[in-house]
Write a protein that binds this DNA or RNA. Structure first.
Length: 375
RNA sequence: GCGAACGUAGCUCAGUAGGUAGAGCACACGGUUGUGGCCCGUGUGGUCGUGGGUUCAAGUCCCAUCGUUCGCC
């Protein structure tokens, strides 16, 4: 018998962990990649497509869903799962990142953050409590605390003040949403910019609060690969061994494997879906830019080793044609493939950890994506 | 037949007062990391319809010629 929030580490290989996170909508095997479905859909895909790609959990976004269609509207329909007909776990980002990256005229106070909608300019206010209430209405399985994502290059003083505010907000989120309520889990978010000691301080303070998991936020915001790697190496081991660790917004195939190697369990990124729409596809042979003229009459599948619907059915010439013609089917077929690749990458990592050969698995992928990992 | 306008990059067009050509699209190649199906960067590409003339210098002024379009007979 298991309860939402239970997390079991089943196997280890170095710092890499193979685990299981229990939620109200099922078990999430880790390490896992979570496709991003910001406004209630993984762009261009149906739930059936996600099931076929073996997606275990997807993301939604509090900021976007609150603005449109509205969280109360969702609550009246039984929440986002019911509305979008996705019966597996959903994680919702708190919207903290969007408030800081999308909206204009934001004002941060102790109480929360006032911002303007990127859609119609209307004024809104997010407090930690409000963000919990919205995510309760959405009904996500894993909720994120409201945090301030510090921009790259922020000085130490600003970063430290911001981190402390994020901690106070995190505590208010936990108080507004006690552990176990509605079977919804709540994750804290480690901030601290690119100062290792501040990251450690943030982690220490958050661990005093009883969260179901811990995320590392504020990465992949313009820093070098080396800085990102250094930071995850130093931060991940500080987090509890018996709780899931989530690296937010990352990343490329190698970023993910490098994260797993430092002990991270969960990843999300727009890269596979956004790049699919822009013609960059991830394959067992490396990155393929499907718009290249060399594929004009190439009748081979995109990736002969891939078992996704796109690769089983269509030629590179056809995929290039669809892309060049801006056909809607291009978005869909490319997204089906890229999502499949990222999920397969994580599945392969899980198996490799179980079999104690994660390093070899990682090296094999690195051979195909060279230059992605700084020494 | 007469009159007028226009012929500049593959396409649609800018080119001011004459000083040896630009844009958008297209094409080519990159980029995209808690997603406004967005977008950004770089690049290839033109004997300025043709032939003369004036001038130190002509896409720009003059003449002729070919072509396109419109109007009038």
């Amino acid at each position: 018998m298991s309860n939402p929030g239970d997390f079991k580490v089943l196997a280890r290989d170095g710092l890499a962990r193979r685990g299981e996170l229990h939620t109200a909508h099922g078990v999430v095997p880790t390490p896992i990649f979570m496709p991003v479905g910001t406004v209630g859909s993984v762009k261009s895909l149906c739930p059936d497509d996600l099931h076929q790609a073996d997606a275990k959990i997807i993301l939604g976004n509090t900021y976007h869903l609150y603005l449109r269609p509205g969280d109360e509207m969702l609550a009246r329909r039984g929440g986002l799962h019911e509305f979008m007909r996705w019966n597996k776990p959903i994680l919702t980002d708190s919207g903290g990142f969007q408030v800081f990256s999308l909206s204009s005229l934001r004002t941060i106070t102790e109480e929360g953050v006032e911002f303007r909608s990127h859609i119609d300019g209307s004024k809104h206010f997010f407090s930690p409590e409000k963000v919990m209430s919205i995510q309760n209405n959405i009904g996500s399985d894993i909720m994120m605390v409201l945090d301030e994502c510090v921009p790259f290059g922020a000085d130490r003083e600003y970063t430290e003040r911001s981190l402390q505010l994020t901690t106070r907000w995190a505590r208010r989120c936990r108080e507004a949403h006690p552990r176990g309520k509605n079977g919804q889990l709540l994750f804290g978010i480690v901030q601290g910019g690119f100062y290792e000691d501040l990251r450690a301080m943030s982690a220490r303070e958050l661990m005093e609060i009883d969260f179901d998991g811990f995320a590392i936020g504020g990465l992949s915001v313009g820093e070098s690969k080396e800085e990102m790697l250094t930071l995850m190496r130093s931060t991940a081991p500080l987090l509890p061994q018996d709780k899931p660790r989530y690296l937010m917004g990352v990343g490329t195939p190698m970023d993910i494997l490098n994260g797993i190697r430092t002990g991270i369990d969960m990843f999300d990124c727009v890269l596979p879906t956004r790049n699919a729409r822009n013609g960059t596809l991830y394959t067992s042979q490396g990155k393929v830019n499907i718009k290249r003229a060399e594929f004009r009459e190439n009748d081979e599948p995109l990736d002969p080793k891939c078992t996704c619907y796109t690769c089983r059915t269509f030629s590179k010439a056809y995929l290039r044609h669809l892309y060049m013609a801006k056909e809607l089917l291009s978005y869909r077929l490319n997204t089906i493939h890229n999502v499949h690749y990222f999920l397969e990458l994580a599945r392969g990592a899980r198996q490799a950890i179980e079999e104690g050969r994660f390093e070899a698995y990682r090296a094999a992928v690195e051979a195909v994506y060279p230059g992605e990992t700084p020494v």
